[in-house]
């Protein structure tokens, strides 16, 4: 993993069109501002992982749905 040190107000650029800026730092919390094309999905990782897990569960349905 690439690790870069940034101060408040400073950014990193990923590729041509994604910018991530440190907009505030308070204790343990860092607020990030992200500029990216609309086609790029941006999610908090925890939520994305939950959705991934739920999709994997969904793909292996077992029940006899005729019981509904």
């Amino acid at each position: 993993m690439l690790a870069l040190t940034r101060k408040k107000g400073e950014s990193v650029i990923i590729g041509d069109d994604i910018e991530i800026m440190v907009t505030s730092i308070r204790g343990e919390q860092v607020k990030l501002g992200i500029v990216a094309p609309a086609s790029v999905s941006i999610y908090r990782k925890e939520l994305y992982e939950i959705i991934k897990r739920e999709n994997r569960e969904a793909a292996k349905f077992r029940a006899d749905i005729d019981k509904l």
Partner: peptide, 18 residues
């Protein structure tokens, strides 16, 4: 919305968030 259908169908659930 994608549903999860577990062995116990009464526990069937749907993902409203995605």
């Amino acid at each position: 919305n994608i549903a999860v259908i577990p062995g116990d169908i009464t526990r069937m659930r749907v993902n409203l968030r995605a």
